[in-house]
Structure formats: structure tokens, C-alpha cells
Amino acid sequence: MTRPKAKFVAAALATMLAGGMAAAETREITIGTGSASGVYRIAGETICRLLNRDTARHGLHCQTRGTGGSIHNIEAIRSGALDFGIVQSDVQYLATKGQGQFKDSGPFKDLRAVFAVYPEPLVVLARDKSGVARFEDFRGKRFNVGNPGSGTRTTIDMLLAAAGMSTNDFSRASELSPDEHGKALCENRIDGLGYVVGNPAANLQAITKACNAHLVPLTGPAVDRLVVETPYFAYTTIPGGTYPGNRDAVRSFGVVATFVTSAKVPNETVHAVASAVFEHFDEFRKQHPIFAYLHPMDTVHSGLTAPLHDGAFRYFRERGWIRRGD
């Protein structure tokens, strides 16, 4: 073999080996989101896209997985089936305590918060001409309480208990997913629905436009008790005009969508994810109207009821957003 040809073969072999090593070193990570029409999907896909821009540098490749929602994501992270997930702050809290739907599986001691994403009030819609003006008016009517395993279902169950109600107070309590409940409302198969979601949500915009559904305010003693007694609930207002045909602002209460992981996920991985999001935060905020008014400091200090992951803590301390003793 001639020397030039030998050099060419050696160079080609080196390139192949280097490429093989790079491919072998790339670590796949998964983010659990929610329904196909929800904001969780948009948030998760945006985080993955921002992270995947620098795969060659940090060796991480991200993909999202549609799931049944917050509770599913928590349990999948616990089992190792997911690396990260987007969950409601109340579900995050219950998981750390081993309460509610986590009573049988016990406290998730390795659950770690990474950052808050956006506020999520409970939005209640009623069918046009249903005669519903307040939540208690759904007694004796058909109401969709949300699919089992979702954060929506958890919040509605808590509201019912605070109001001295149960699913037995409805003539039918359906368990449709967010991808199904709009069609059911417009086809007069249910009289109302609840959905914990960031606003404006395309899912709810379609419903209010297609069949004149109206927002139902969530106020009164039951809501007051929930907000006062639980650390992860807060009052919120859905601005007038957020949804077609709903000109007036409507009071509600809600939680915060949070991004979580496990203590078993390496610090370097979590640091890289946080860096990818916050180094391109302006771009992140452009991906959905609900992200438009987010501020980095809010994402560090709102709704994080699980301990902060060490990798996230290191990144936020580097940015000066938290102090060493926080």
C-alpha cells in the first residue's frame, strides 16, 4: 500500500472510530409531557429542541413522550422509565409526602425539582344554556372530572371534598381525557368539564368557539379553604377575552406546572438542561402565549415543593438567582 493511500485509510478509520465513540457516548433522555393538545407537550418539545442543539457538546439527546399527565410522569420517573417530567406542583407535593394517590407507593424521596414552568389554574367550562353560573350548580348534572392519573382529576377531587361534594353529586361523572372532553361538551354528552391548564389553551379556545361554552368562576369558602390550607394553591384570574365569547375576567385558583426529575439523574445532565432553557429563555417564551410573561426568578422560586436538584441548584447559583444558603 502506498504511503498516501495508507494515510487516507488511517484518516478514514480515525474518523469512523471518532464518530462511533461520539454516537456511543450520546445519552438519550426522555421527558414525560401530557396530552397531544396540551401545553405540557409544547413545553417538553421546546426543552428538547433547545437541549438537542448542543448534543455534540454535552452528549445528550432529548425526546418527549406523551403520557396520561402528572401522576403518570411521577411514577415513571420513580421507576426510571422517564428521566424528567412536567407535573403540577400539588402532585409534586403529594408525591414527596406519599399522600393522595401516592399513598400505596409511598413517599418519593428521590423526587427533585428543576424549575417551575408556568401557572395552571383550574378552568371550568359549562355548556351553553346549561343553567350553570357557579360550580355548585353542577349538582345533578353531567360533569367530566378528568382522566384517572391526571393532575386535573387530583385538583377536582380536592375541590369536591372542600365543597362537601363527591362525584356522586353528579348525574354522571365522566373520565374523559383532554383530547375527548371538548367534543363531548359540544355534542351535549356532558354539561361541564374541569381542566387544569395554562391559558390560553388551544383545546379550550376550540370548545368556547365551537359551542359557546362559558367559563365558570371558582370562588367562595371552599376555594378559600383550599388556598389557605395548601402551600401549592394560589388565587388566579383568567383575563377577559382569553376565550371566545367570554369577555369578563373570571376568578379561579390553581397550581404551577413544574419540571422535575430524580436525584439519580446526574448533576451534569440536569445542569445542561437548565442551561439550555435559560440561556435561550427569550426563545422559550415565544413558543406559547402562556410563556410570554415568565421571568426566570419566578421559575426558580414558584411551586417547587420537592427539593431542588443539585445540578439545577448549581446552575441557578452560578446565575446569581439563589444564594449558597437557600
Rank of each mutant, 00 (worst) to 15 (best):
K5P: 07
K5Y: 14
K5G: 10
K5D: 14
A6F: 11
A10D: 15
A10S: 13
A14V: 03
T15G: 14
L17F: 10
A18M: 08
G20L: 02
M21T: 08
T26S: 07
R27G: 04
R27I: 03
T30W: 01
I31G: 03
T33H: 00
G34Q: 12
S35Y: 11
R41H: 07
R41A: 09
I42Y: 04
A43E: 03
T46C: 07
I47S: 01
R49Y: 11
R53P: 09
D54R: 14
T55L: 03
H61M: 13
T64L: 08
R65S: 15
R65T: 14
G66A: 15
T67H: 06
G69W: 04
S70P: 12
H72N: 14
I74Y: 09
I77T: 03
G85Y: 06
L94E: 13
A95T: 05
Q99F: 09
G100A: 14
F102D: 09
V114K: 10
F115E: 07
V117Q: 00
P121G: 05
P121E: 00
V123R: 05
V124G: 14
D128M: 06
S130H: 05
S130P: 01
F135E: 01
F138S: 04
K141I: 01
V145R: 01
N147V: 12
T152Y: 08
T154H: 10
T155D: 15
M158A: 14
M158D: 12
L160I: 02
L160G: 04
A162K: 00
T167E: 15
F170A: 02
S171W: 04
A173H: 01
D179I: 02
H181I: 10
K183H: 13
L185C: 03
C186N: 10
E187P: 01
I190F: 07
D191L: 07
G192M: 04
G192D: 07
Y195D: 12
Y195C: 10
Y195V: 09
A201N: 13
Q205V: 12
A206F: 08
T208P: 07
K209S: 12
V216R: 06
P217N: 03
L218E: 05
L218Y: 06
T219K: 13
G220L: 02
P221L: 06
A222M: 00
E229V: 00
G245Y: 00
R247M: 14
R247S: 15
F253T: 11
F253Y: 13
G254T: 08
V255S: 13
A257C: 09
A257R: 01
T258M: 02
V265W: 01
N267V: 04
E268Q: 13
H271S: 07
H271K: 11
A274M: 11
H280K: 03
D282Q: 11
E283F: 04
E283T: 09
R285W: 02
Q287V: 12
P289D: 04
P289H: 02
I290Q: 15
A292I: 10
L294G: 15
L294C: 10
H295A: 15
D298W: 11
H301N: 12
H301P: 09
T305H: 15
P307N: 10
D310C: 07
Y315D: 11
